[in-house]
Write a protein that binds this DNA or RNA. Sequence first.
DNA 1: TTGGGATGGCCAT
DNA 2: TGGCCCTCCCAAA
Length: 355
Amino acid sequence: MPEGHTVHRLARTFASLYAGQTLRVSSPQGRFADGAAVLSGRRLVASEAWGKQLFLGFAPADGSDAEVTGMTSASDVLWLRIHLGLYGAWTFAGAPDTPEVVHAIGAPRKRIGERETTAPPAATEGSTSEGSTSEGSTSDGSTSDWVVPEPRGQVRVRLLGDHAVADLTGPTACEVITPEEKRAVEARLGPDPIRDDGDVEAFVARVGRSRVTIAQQLMDQVVISGAGNIYRAEVLFRAGVDPLRPGRDVPAAVLRVIWDDLVVLMRDGADRGAIVTTRPEDRGSRPGRPPEEALPPEGRGRTRQNTDGTPGAVPSDQAFYVYHRAGLPCRICGTPVLVKELAGRNLFWCETCQT
DNA sequence: TTGGGATGGCCAT
DNA sequence: TGGCCCTCCCAAA
């Protein structure tokens, strides 16, 4: 489930998993059958993220030898634009010797090296012709005994490469677009802190022009791309800024601190596959504060799917300062964390630490 | 078995 | 601002 860090991680994953490969694209669910037909048999030559948008570039399989990177303007490239929305997800499965799959975090479900115990049904008429495919004839033989699993759930898109398969469920957006259309989408997106071309000053200028609260502006993808409800709550806490303060009342220097912190936090999130904003010394219980178990259940943090279960990961109930911690004592001052619905989303903050 | 959420965003009003 | 869409999962009944 995505904030921008997840999408960047996915972009990397697709690059390492499929770059240069001719992919078979299908729509087991059927709702992307036309787009799948257009893309299937093309070669993946680019995998990019901008904020929460994922762009996968497909060149003609027999076309000019586009480089795997840096061919974003090639006119014969078609782009698959994907936005996961609130609950879209990629599920990966691959041959047991496909290390990249292990790192395909961000998609909460992954099936690594899973094998079907029953023989795959013969291909039938209809939209699911991609169903199950023995990979026994792969050129290098490395996946000789891997059987592509059946799609599970409402799979909008399936991307099948040489040694892995990726299934997309529940996206908000999933469409094939031209290079010009891609540029038009990007023109409407604010700067992305994870990208090298992310423009701090554009962010600062934009926020400073508006009376809209800083909390709402951090969620506005025109102002800044990639931050979601967790990062906005956490970065405002770390900066000590009252989320309800109008953007124009936040000093530019503080806005730069917020941006710089997002750069660090989101790049870290993309690397580790989970959002962690707490400093080690602020995790766990402290003397003088009740342990979380002593608090009413409704006050307890509950965040699913923030990690992929990696051993040694920071537990999700210690990963945040305020997100999903309504009623719990602030990790710094002990004041109960507040929650309020703002523009349809829950906003968490500490009124003592954030002024 | 049901129903309410969830790290989003679009559209109409 | 409210309604609606996309889908899955877990707690409550």
